[in-house]
Design a protein around this nucleic acid. Structure first.
Lengths: 254, 254
DNA sequence: TCAAAAGTGTTCTTATTACACCCATGG
DNA sequence: CCATGGGTGTAATAAGAACACTTTTGA
C-alpha cells in the first residue's frame, strides 16, 4: 500500500513519530511521459496537510529494509502498475526546513514511461493522480518545483548522450514523433532534414516497412529502436550524441 | 569538532543510539587535489570498528539543524581549514546493508581544492589524513570505492563543460600544468598543440607576462583564469567545451 | 653542449549548418 | 482539389585530428 510520503506528518502523528525518528528519509519520483507532442509529469493532489490541495510529486518514506532504488521503484509501481522502466537517481534534497513538520531528507528520482502503457491507477488514486504538461506545472508542494527542475535538467543532459528518448515512445514510432520528443525535452527546435540525417546515420533504427494508417496526409514510415545493436556498438566504443543546435555567438576578443 | 561519521557506530554506542534513530544520514566528501601531475584524494584512516585501519572518505552525520550542503562544507573545513571551495553533491547511497551496524544513508559530495593551500591538519587528524593518488586507491571502508567512482565520474563529466579545472590549480599556472590536469582527470592523452589552440581560443586565460623561474629548461609563461570574463560570456550564451579526444571507431553498417 | 620542456602552423578530414520543393493521403 | 504533414540532397562553413621542428634555460 502506497503512503504519500509527506502526508504521514500531520500533527497528530508527529508526536508519536518523534519517538522513533529524529529524522526520516523519503524518495520522490518525477515520472515523465510523452503525449500529443508534449512532455508530461505525473503529479498527485495532496489530500492532507501540509499543502493540502496542492499538487506534489509522488513519493514515500523509505522502509527500514528497503534500498533507496527499490523505494523509488515501488512508488512508481504502486502508482502506475509498471515495472522495469527506466529509473535514475538525481540527487538528495536536505534543506533543514524543506518539510514544515520535521526533518525529512528526500532523494529525487525520475522515470521514463510509455504513457500509453500507463493503466488507469488503482481506485484510491484515480482522482488524485494526473498528467501535467511540463510547461504548465506551477507552484507545487514542498520544494517539489526545485526537485522537478533538477530532474528535468538531468533528463535534458542525458537525452543528448544516451538513447533514452525511446523509453518515452511506443515501440513503433515515426521520425517526426521522435523529433518532437527531442524538441519537447530540449526545449528547442530542430531542423527536420538534419535531425533525420543524424539519427539515421547512427543505424540504430529498424525500418519496419510499415506506415501509419488513417492519417489525413502522406503516412509516415514506422521505426523501432534497435537496442541490441546499440549495446553492441557501445561495447565497441560508440557514443550516442545528439547536440542541441547551439546558437552561434562568437565571443569577441577582449 | 569533527566526528568520523561511521565511527559513531561501534557496538557500545549502538544500543543507545537506537533510542533516537531508526536510521541516520551522513555526508561523505571526496576531496580532490592535484599535485605532481597526479589527481589525488584525501582519505582518512579509520581508528575504530567497523573497518578499523582501513582508509575511508571523510564524512560525518548530518546535524539535526544543518542543511546537507552545510554538513559537507563543515566536514571539508574541519579537515582542511578551507572555506568557499567548489563543492558539489553527486548522489545518495542508500543500500540497506551499506553500513554493517545500522541503516545509514549517505550523501556523496566532491570538492576541489588547491592542494598547496591545504594546511597541515589539526593535531587530531595529522596522522590520519593523507593524500592518495587516485590510481593507487584500493579497497576502502564501507561502499566508499563506489562513492569515489561516482564522484570521479561526475568530475570527468563536469570538467569537459565547465571551467572547474582551475579550482585545482594555483592562481598562476602554465599551459602544460593545465594540460596535465586535464589528462589526469580525463585519463587520456591530449595533443599539446590542439589543446593550446583550443583553450587559448576561448580567451579565458590572462597572459601574466611572467615566466617560471629556476627550472632547468625553457621557462613557461604563467597564466591566470579570467573568472569575470567567463561569467560575462556565459550570460551571452557561451559554453565552455573541451572534448575528450574520442577514438574514431566508424560503426560498420549492419 | 646537453637534456628537458616550451612554444608554434598547416593540411586534411569530418561534422554541422542552412535551406526549398515535391509526395501521398483523407476529407 | 485542397490541406496536411512526409520525405529528400547539396553546398558552405566550422571544428577536430594529425603531425615535427626550433627555442630557451640550468646544469
Amino acid at each position: 500500500m502506497l503512503i504519500f510520503a509527506d502526508e504521514l506528518y500531520n500533527e497528530q502523528e508527529m508526536t508519536e513519530f518523534n519517538n522513533f525518528f529524529k529524522s526520516a528519509f523519503s524518495v520522490d519520483n518525477v515520472i515523465f511521459g510523452f503525449d500529443e507532442g508534449d512532455l508530461k509529469v505525473l503529479l498527485i493532489k495532496r489530500g492532507a496537510e501540509p499543502f493540502k490541495g496542492k499538487w506534489a510529486l509522488p513519493g514515500d518514506l523509505v522502509y527500514p529494509n528497503e534500498d533507496l532504488d527499490a523505494a523509488a521503484g515501488r512508488v512508481l509501481e504502486e502508482l502506475t502498475g509498471l515495472r522495469e522502466v527506466y529509473l535514475e537517481q538525481v540527487k538528495a534534497f536536505g534543506a533543514v526546513n524543506r518539510h514544515p513538520l520535521g526533518r525529512v531528507i528526500t532523494v529525487a528520482y525520475y522515470s521514463l514511461i510509455k504513457i500509453n502503457k500507463y493503466v488507469v491507477t488503482p481506485a484510491s488514486f484515480a482522482q488524485k493522480a494526473k498528467w501535467h504538461s511540463i510547461a504548465e506545472v506551477n507552484d507545487l508542494a514542498f520544494d517539489h518545483n526545485e526537485i522537478l527542475n533538477a530532474c528535468f535538467d538531468r533528463l535534458k543532459q542525458r537525452v543528448r548522450t544516451r538513447p533514452l528518448g525511446f523509453e518515452l515512445l511506443p515501440p513503433k514510432f515515426t521520425l517526426t514523433e521522435l523529433q518532437h520528443l527531442y524538441e519537447a525535452i530540449l526545449e528547442t527546435e530542430l531542423d527536420k532534414r538534419n535531425f533525420r540525417k543524424k539519427i539515421l546515420s547512427m543505424n540504430l533504427l529498424i525500418d519496419l516497412d510499415e506506415t501509419q494508417e488513417g492519417v489525413a496526409h502522406r503516412p509516415a514510415k514506422l521505426f523501432e529502436f534497435d537496442r541490441d545493436r546499440y549495446e553492441k556498438l557501445v561495447k565497441d566504443g560508440f557514443s550516442f550524441e545528439l547536440k542541441e543546435s547551439k546558437r552561434k555567438l562568437v565571443p569577441t576578443q577582449s
